[in-house]
Design a protein around this nucleic acid. Structure first.
Lengths: 205, 205
DNA sequence: GTCTATATTTGGATAGAC
DNA sequence: GTCTATCCAAATATAGAC
């Protein structure tokens, strides 16, 4: 009859994610994090070594699965004989949107992601590049196929801007309440449609 | 033969703007700011009273004129017998885009603005609301005229999301180098066109 | 693996001389 | 208006008992 066990590490990650979303990486202190997680201050350094590494692990926990889902969705799209810009965008947007509307705190993480874009932090960019650049690469290849008129350099900066704007928008979408009489799924699909149309306009022309 | 005189206050504001853009409000310390401005540490509290108030003044210095320009551009639009969504968006986007491409450090400020959106900081939101809510209000009225199918609540959250995404995109546009053989003005107009199309897609439907 | 206690650094703010 | 010196709070990190 015990409550399910949540490890100290898990609780630290949950609290850190939530506090980083609300106050930023520099703005949230380890004291706030450990207090909110009901663990001892020293636990962070024991489990993660440093605040910097804790930040990395907050990203890794969600990005490993999020990016797997994105790549799986992209693989499905690529199987189709004819696919368009909206299909590729869907593979990028839908998994993140699902996360931003999840019950388990995923909404907080998307806001952390949005912060990471706004920060342009060198150290963080390096970590993300080291661990997930293959995802960006595969998407860039797919985008190049459906946007053949853009040269490589132009494509890259547009993707950078559009993914940032999209992430920002998704971070806010998590907060939007759905219309009464609309199912969770309908709400998500409608949001995805809007976002995809939004992003497509930023990439085409 | 003296170099033009820049006051201590000006230099502090310049340095603060640049450092807030790069490291965030919590991430940039007053020691960094004063060192970069070549002024004494105590000067910040003498001239501004507190770090919090320094942040406010960094915003005020640019937003007063930026928002004036936006309102003037909007007034021009409203004079026209028939105007559309793109016209209203242009009045919002073009002055900010000009700032983001200015020589005098305005690019840094647009990145500070983007951070403010990502932060969702309560105190900062209150300051911006207290000082500039009349601008948002006038634009919201104009947007309501060209988007009559959206109810008030829906319009408001869309404006919030779109203006955040736009600001994020503009912050990055400042860094984009223009194509060789394209004038400064052509480059800016092209960027504005893209951004307006981008935002229009997020608002229509 | 978790705690208390503490070392060390850094940051915001102020007092008081000039 | 500007400087030096300093106070005090808060932060990261670690040492060592349990």
């Amino acid at each position: 009859m015990n409550a399910p066990h949540f490890s100290t590490k898990q609780r630290i990650l949950d609290s850190a994610e939530s506090l980083f979303a609300r106050h930023g990486f520099a703005g949230a202190s380890l004291r706030q994090v450990t207090a909110s997680a009901n663990v001892n201050l020293a636990a962070v350094n024991y489990h993660f070594g440093s605040k910097e590494n804790l930040i990395n692990e907050v990203f890794r926990r969600r990005l490993d699965s999020l990016n797997e889902e994105r790549l799986a969705a992209l693989a499905e799209v690529l199987k189709q004989p004819r696919f368009g810009l909206e299909d590729v965008l869907g593979a990028f947007v839908r998994p993140a949107l699902a996360l931003s509307m999840a019950e388990d705190g995923g909404a907080g993480f998307v806001r952390v992601l949005a912060r990471a874009f706004a920060e342009h932090n060198e150290r963080l960019r390096k970590f993300l590049h080291d661990n997930y650049s293959h995802v960006l690469k595969q998407f860039a290849t797919a985008f190049a196929q459906v946007l053949p008129h853009l040269d490589k350099q132009e494509l890259y900066w547009r993707l950078d801007i559009v993914s940032g704007a999209l992430t920002y928008a998704m971070a806010d979408f998590g907060v939007i309440k759905r219309r009464p009489g609309m199912s969770e799924l309908q709400h998500r699909d409608l949001a995805a449609e809007h976002l995809i149309k939004f992003a497509a306009a930023g990439l085409r022309t």
